[in-house]
Design a protein around this nucleic acid. Structure first.
Lengths: 205, 205, 205, 205
DNA sequence: TATGAATGAGGGTTCATTCAT
DNA sequence: AATGAATGAACCCTCATTCAT
């Protein structure tokens, strides 16, 4: 069937993609060898170059997978008439945690190779990073305008703190290869981040 | 005189060290060439191997510089009879910001090459990371015991959020190569991080 | 109809042939990729192997095209009862110039890839080169026997000088991608070569 | 001795240079492998890159050797007050023949890889080729002005014919790997080229 | 100490050729 | 006849490290 043929082609590309995810996660971008990726995908050496122009291109494909999903979410959030900042921030948190559950390697690579590694940042990659920051900042600013978030700090500072908390949570899990056990734990993590971000760590009693 | 010779030796070693800082900051550990570092230090590249066993060893020396300072601080904090958690957290923040001011490259490398890049983490390096986490966690736990910090979250979670906020602040500055202009700005940044961490981002009015 | 199918086959083979001419002229034999040739011919690159055994084989087909025409001419000249050496040499010159006009790439490839490049010369190819040389030499010898050409030089030397002049003329045109504008210019070029070859460059006044 | 040390360094570079000459002559530029050259020079692989930036650079060094010598000669000829065109042309011929004797591979490479192979011609290389052509043309024009050479042909045409004859002579020798046996033969070859170029191949009796 | 020549393993990429469909 | 996915040998180049001086 035609559909199958198409599926086969996609399958192979997908196999390479996933192999790349796995190998890059293991060894990092620089130490990941194209031959490793090919072997992991169960194909020959040169075939990788049939589907991806070169190593850089393969890396970009992975990065794009992450950003595309995230920007789709941010577009959703922006277009939302809902003024509930809590919900918006919660959705951002869930994007990280959901992806962490479904595609652990992708989050790992984002954290280790993109988020912090300035050496892998081409200007194009940096741009998307800044864009995401500014979209999040817009959510913060909106919260300040609606008197939901305190306005005595710059929205930018709030953004740093929020994303920093989120990212470090995920990073720490990445660091120890911790798995999220079920949706209950995921909810608890999201609650913690949001609660502390909103109400602070100080004992309010 | 012996003393002078030693000084000379130290000078040369120091020159290599600083050159390595600069180059690794620019290119990242993997792309930093020993020859780049030697050229930057104004010596032949063979000589680098006189002072450092190999590239890995040179990298470790840099990492150690960071951790040594930080653990000295943490030891100070731990040994402190003072029960003021605020002050302790503030001192941690200042270690990051001070080092950022005095030795920008060092913080940059810590952020980009150590803090997040799991691929550079030998088990030895990972251990120190975890140790720092647990020392910070001890401060949090102490705060919870003294009813200064809320106890409805794990101390580990509070640690993540605190260090995440701090780290992302510095990361963001690293990312845009931002300089801290004077102690006033440094104070403001420290205040923001601490205030939001303790009292939350929610408008309390 | 069979005839049409054959024609179609020939058409496709011819298309590949011409594409190969164009690409090899542009990039040289070594850098010409089979995929380039296929793309230029408007077919898939696997199909090239249906018509030509391999790259070498395709190259040989091109070379043969050149030599076949030239040897046919030389056979004509040899079989000619006419003793006019001038005419014979003129016909050789015209073969180069005519082919240059009608099939520029072919001459280009002959000059750049066959005539001088010893590395592309298999013994088979070298043989035909030598054969052509010796056929031309026979014309020279005949001219010497008939007292038309001077006999105080070896016929071989005369051959070198004649073919050298001819070839360099064409080479120079190839080098600057010069087109021959009309038959008048072609005649003038042929006259110049022949006149200088026969009467010398010295001012005879 | 210091002199020896310098000599040693030069020796190694020279060894690579000569190995490259030999290998490129054998296989042509494209098929010559850097590893072949290193092996031929009796050194390790990477050392070639210590002395030459890359393969292209090594090739250029060879080309330069040829052109430098030739342009030095042409400068000499141009600066000459002597108006004897014969002598000037003879000196050009001797440059080719002398180099052929002393450095056979160099002439071979010039003929096969530079003179005719347009695919190896970067614009820089082409420029020098044209420059040499125009310098020779100046000699021809001078001969025409002094009524030594006939003026009913363009100086450019005379240049083509002269250089063509010369080049083809050498080419033919290259092709059959013919060695020049002694100075006597060299003189005879030079005489033949010059005599036919000046007085023509026609029997004058 | 100091130099930089020398080594060679390693890895990215190309591309002719084969083959299943 | 036709396609283009698949293979893998080749080959250039980099660079950490060693070593003779």
């Amino acid at each position: 069937m035609k559909k199958d043929l198409t599926a086969f082609k996609k399958d192979k590309e997908q196999a390479i993609f996933e192999a790349a995810l796995k190998i890059i996660k293991q060894k990092g971008f620089h130490k990941a060898r194209m031959s490793d990726i090919a072997k992991e995908a169960g194909i020959s050496y040169g075939l990788v170059y049939h589907y991806f122009k070169n190593k850089e291109d393969l890396f970009d494909a992975i990065i794009n997978r992450w950003w595309d999903g995230l920007f789709k979410l941010m577009a959703n959030i922006s277009g939302d008439n809902e003024y509930d900042v809590h919900k918006k921030l919660r959705r951002i948190i869930y994007y990280f945690l959901d992806t962490y559950q479904s595609n652990y390697e992708l989050v790992n690579i984002f954290i280790t190779e993109i988020s912090r590694s300035t050496t892998n940042l081409t200007s194009n990659r940096l741009d998307r990073f800044k864009k995401f920051m500014s979209l999040t900042q817009a959510v913060m600013a909106e919260g300040q305008e609606n008197d939901i978030l305190r306005a005595d700090f710059k929205a930018r500072y709030l953004t740093y703190i929020f994303l920093g908390a989120l990212e470090t949570f995920v990073s720490a899990m990445v660091l120890v290869d911790q798995k999220i056990k079920g949706d209950a734990q995921k909810d608890r993590i999201a609650d913690s981040i949001l609660e502390v971000f909103l109400n602070g760590a100080k004992n309010q009693k």
